[in-house]
Structure formats: structure tokens, C-alpha cells
Computed example of a mutant assay.
Amino acid sequence: MSHNNDKNNGSHNEISLCVTQALDRYFSDLDGEKPVGIYDMVIREVEKPMLQSVLRQTRGNQTQAAEILGMTRNTLRRKLTEHGLL
């Protein structure tokens, strides 16, 4: 396994840990209330900062950002519009 893959796996594990800790806090803070719509909430909360970070890395180049994200440029533009990032 290459060093780059090790670095990516470490980042992935760190992101997973952050999401897990945030969800644990969320459930703890519910104080007995029933959680609803967790999937959509997490996607919404994670997607915007991810898009912003990738765009910063590509200095706003949407074609490169779409490639990094593994989506078409049209899909990226739709997501940017949904999050008010255009």
C-alpha cells in the first residue's frame, strides 16, 4: 500500500470519527425526543463544507472539483446552487 493511500485512509477514519462523535452528541442532546430525518440532516450538514473545501483546493475550478468529487460538472453545479455557493 502506498503512502498516499495510508494518508487517505487516515483522513477517512478521522472524518468518520468526527461524524460519529457529532451524532453521539446529537443523540445525547435529544433528551428523550425521537430523532427524525437523520440521514438527510447529516448529508446536508456534511455536503456544503465538503464542496467548499474541494473548491478551495481547486481554486474554484469546477471541472477539477467535479473530478475530485467523482461527479459530473452538471451535478456539482446543481449541488452548488442548492447550497447557495454559486
Rank of each mutant, 00 (worst) to 15 (best):
R44L: 07
R44Q: 12
E45Q: 08
E82L: 11
K34G: 03
V19K: 13
M50C: 06
N5M: 14
T20V: 06
K34D: 14
N4Y: 07
V42N: 01
N13C: 11
S2A: 13
A22S: 14
S2P: 08
E67W: 09
C18E: 08
G32Q: 06
N74Q: 12
H83S: 03
M1P: 00
N13R: 14
L69N: 01
Q62M: 07
L69H: 02
R25N: 15
F27N: 08
E47N: 10
I15C: 13
N4P: 00
S28N: 07
R73N: 11
E47Q: 15
G37F: 04
G10K: 04
A22D: 05
F27V: 11
V54C: 02
S16K: 07
E33F: 02
I38F: 07
L17P: 00
H83V: 05
C18R: 09
Q52E: 15
G37P: 06
G70W: 14
K79F: 06
T75R: 03
I38H: 08
Y26N: 02
D40C: 01
S11Q: 15
S53L: 09
E14W: 05
E14D: 12
G60H: 11
N9C: 13
Q21I: 04
H12Y: 15
L30Q: 01
T81C: 02
D40K: 12
G60L: 04
Q57A: 10
P49I: 00
G32W: 01
H12S: 15
L85F: 11
E45D: 12
S2F: 08
R56G: 03
N8E: 05
T58R: 05
L23W: 01
T75S: 11
D6E: 14
L17M: 06
L69Y: 03
P35H: 04
D24S: 14
H83R: 08
R25H: 11
